[in-house]
Design a protein around this nucleic acid. Structure first.
Lengths: 333, 333
DNA sequence: CTGTTAGCGCCTTCAT
DNA sequence: ATGAAGGCGCTAACAG
């Protein structure tokens, strides 16, 4: 670790350490000549401040944390980018952590971020560490849930309109004449699971249709569960003539199964999905889908943190921001 | 920020703060009874240590940094995952930063990581902040370049065998009878640009073929440059009958152009690329490619850091680890 | 305008 | 086995 401290600068410039500190922090009450001398000394000795000492003393780290569910999921990369760009704008840094949808790992990162004294937290919660998350909240550290929401948390939330997105998507399937539309959705323990399922039901109900009981498959958002679900669906009677997949990974698995069964889309079976990963246009045919404003989710969530930071004294009512999605019609239905 | 300190624990347990510190750090010389009392007090008052103070005092942060080039590129997500998993194993934390291939942003993160006193650095360098990177090196902070290597840096390196990968890939194109093979590669200022180009030339030379001068296009790894390069290629005379794309993004752009020109792969034009993104199997036809061991790159790089940390006293010779790639033959050539 | 001083929270000799 | 005291590097009163 570095050895050069503010003392060395002071000595080199022939002033006291407090004067150096003043210059470093851009205080006004320093004679211009002295300021220059200090700046020169900083260059000369190659000084750069120790953030640990500075933060310890000033009780401020200028750092916020983001815990995502799965960094391999491109939607979180987008969210991270949005949050990071916003943080930078406010002179803050983003500490990006990946829980891997694992509750122990999430707990570990929550602890670590706590000990590192972050001043704001963005999190796509696994749903198992509510107590720990609330600690931040009670300590007046703004918390914003992103992408998904856990019911037991009274924090700000930034999500997209999952229900409406799914509803509109499924309606667009219906409007193309499909009669037996199956759904492969994620676990209903998180909003991205339950809301998209609920949108699916709404769409059917809007058209006076009913879901066939074994045409609804619950996965865990992972590719393998999409694959297995689709295999199951292709054994049912009646067969579904279209499928709604609840996220990009499960869609990928389902498409693999469809391909293995030599079914062609959209003739043999229609297909549509939540998320618009880059492969969706490469696929033949391109997949009709719901595009979420992920980058914007990151921005809005980060801005919410900074807003809370600024208004800390005011009374506090949790806000939920719901961003709208866009249905993109392609050729798979 | 938190208010409960080691003092509160000491008071609650009726001991001195040094005793609390001893218990916290698992020192042996503490009476069993006292240890229990302290642990109970920790629970009672809800104490958790302040990492800033601890690190400042102990001169150790147990943190390493990773600066990637572009978090939206799935290869870096994989590398990050590998590095993170390894760091966790060693009881370290990973500070993940995204330079966005921007030199100012890279400089900013280098500064910030320096000030935060990381104990090791993994970086996919932009190639413009050598001086700053060397500072770490001189301060005995192990530095490992990952994925790409900048010539002016005397650090450890973990890369894949870009040249051999490209060479074998292009050979597999040649062996399928293509005669005019074009290349779209990234900037030769980084190894992932120059080595893959060099592999392309080797392959041709191995078969006594020559590259047509206007069949070599230099992009910057971004999708748009792949698209434009392909548009250019499709205006040349003679036309190329196959294309080698130097990474996933440029491949995507090139494929877009090919599609717009209504050319079919592999009949009208053969296609192969570096990287094996998830869309490569969704594409029709699936794209023959080079699969890099990205996750392993992350692991190996992180382990190198910890090895250096352990052997700090020993004399030091930079190591370059070159991991082998795998050619995956699909249906695009 | 500038220097002296007192901590931020913690770990670690040094006594006892 | 335990407590007192000093200091990691820095900022922010408080004097002058």
């Amino acid at each position: 670790m570095q050895k050069i401290t503010i003392r060395d600068v002071a000595k080199s410039a022939g002033v006291s350490i407090s004067t150096v500190s003043r210059v470093l922090n851009g205080r006004e009450n320093v004679k211009e000549k002295v300021r220059e001398a200090v700046n020169k000394a900083v260059e000369d000795v190659g000084y750069s401040p120790n953030a640990l000492a500075r933060s310890l003393r000033s009780q401020s780290t200028k750092t916020i944390g983001l815990i995502v569910n799965n960094i391999l999921n491109p939607i979180y990369a987008d969210i991270a980018q949005g949050a990071e760009d916003t943080a930078r704008q406010y002179g803050f840094q983003l500490f990006l952590c990946n829980s891997g949808a694992n509750k122990e790992q999430e707990a570990m990162y929550l602890n670590s971020l706590w000990e590192k004294k972050i001043e704001g937290l963005l999190i796509a919660p696994t749903g198992f560490n509510e107590t720990r998350i609330n600690d931040f909240f009670y300590a007046n550290v703004p918390v914003v849930q992103v992408d998904r929401k856990s019911d037991n948390l009274q924090t700000d939330v930034v999500v997209t309109n999952n229900k409406k997105g799914a509803e509109q998507l499924v309606e667009s399937i219906i409007e193309r004449g499909y009669k037996n539309i199956a759904a492969i959705v994620g676990s209903p323990t998180v909003t991205t699971g339950v809301d998209r399922l609920s949108g699916y039901f709404s769409a059917l109900s809007n058209y006076n249709m009913e879901a066939h009981f074994n045409h609804i498959k619950i996965g865990n958002f992972a590719e393998s569960t999409g694959y297995e679900a689709m295999n199951e669906l292709l054994k049912t009677d009646p067969l579904p003539d279209a499928v709604f997949a609840g996220n990009n990974f499960m869609a990928k698995g389902a498409l693999k199964s469809i391909k293995e069964h030599n079914l062609s889309i959209p003739q043999d079976i229609g297909f549509a999905m939540f998320d618009n990963p880059d492969w969706s246009d490469m696929h033949n045919p391109p997949i009709t889908c719901v595009q979420q404003p992920n980058y914007k989710v990151g921005i809005v969530a980060a801005e919410l943190v900074f807003r809370r930071l600024k208004e800390q004294e005011k009374e506090w009512v949790p806000i939920t921001e719901t961003l709208e999605n866009k249905i993109i019609i392609k050729d798979s239905v």
